[in-house]
Design a protein around this nucleic acid. Structure first.
Lengths: 135, 135
DNA sequence: CTAATTAGTTTGACTATCAAACAATATAAA
DNA sequence: TTTATATTGTTTGATAGTCAAACTAATTAG
């Protein structure tokens, strides 16, 4: 049997290329969509927290949020508790796009696991959860 | 139980952030390492074929190969059968780096599956292979 | 032999990224 | 409370990655 390491990497590559393609179709860049996804999945998140989740520095995010704001997908909301920072929120338009993309993810998962029976799906999910717990 | 779709995406994100971090430590960019990986895993590959595997256009790859060449990691080798194209080959230095990175992948797989027993590992591998076969 | 196709390069425009310097605010220490 | 330190986010300057489109050279089809 082929190495689990090689299979994992190939699996990752496939996911990456799928994600890339799907995002491009929506006219966004991968990074923009990823940022939108983090904001959509974390209500009331601040700039700093977003940078940590994305693994980028604040200067990079400033530019990104400027662009997403210009695209009317997100907005900066002042934080009364700490005037240095902002809450980043999705606009209506941003929320719609975020949900569309989440739906794409669901369809991807559907398609990936198409050849698995429901028992296999459950086992796969359990194993992945076990792996995720380790991080 | 949590959605398989969400878990898959989170799993992918974790892999991506691990890969990013690991590659940065080596002083390369993610794209450079990924390109090196494609070249290392496919002896005698041509520019055109690399672009297909990476999902980028030829113009982008020309610049990338120029850079990797300047870093003395790869070289263009003339193709006597088709004088329009080149074989891209790893240099000694490139080959060493490629192998180091492959080793990192092995260690990642080790670490990811640390909490799984050997039966679980085998099941996971079988399921992933089944998924990969679908593409 | 000419026309059409293919492989790769170049150019121009935009996005992503980091490091480092900076401003404004918040927190700790005196 | 006042001062020193730390944190949050912005700006600037440099480098890398990306695409589309125009281009060159070589191959293939008619």
């Amino acid at each position: 049997m082929r190495d689990l390491s090689k299979n994992l990497i190939e699996f990752y590559d496939k996911l990456a290329s799928w994600e890339n393609e799907t995002v491009r179709d929506s006219g966004m860049t991968l990074q923009q969509m990823h940022t939108l996804d983090v904001i959509g999945s974390n209500k009331g998140i601040r700039m700093k927290e977003i940078t940590e989740k994305l693994g980028i520095v604040t200067g990079t995010l400033t530019v990104m949020i400027d662009r997403l704001t210009k695209l009317e997908l997100v907005e900066r909301v002042v934080n009364a508790n700490d005037k240095r920072s902002f809450y980043i929120e999705l606009t209506e338009k941003g929320s719609k796009l975020y949900q569309e993309h989440a739906h794409h993810h669901d369809m991807l998962a559907e398609e990936l696991t198409h050849d698995l029976n429901s028992e296999e799906k459950e086992i796969l999910n359990k194993i992945i959860e076990k792996i995720l717990r380790r991080f």
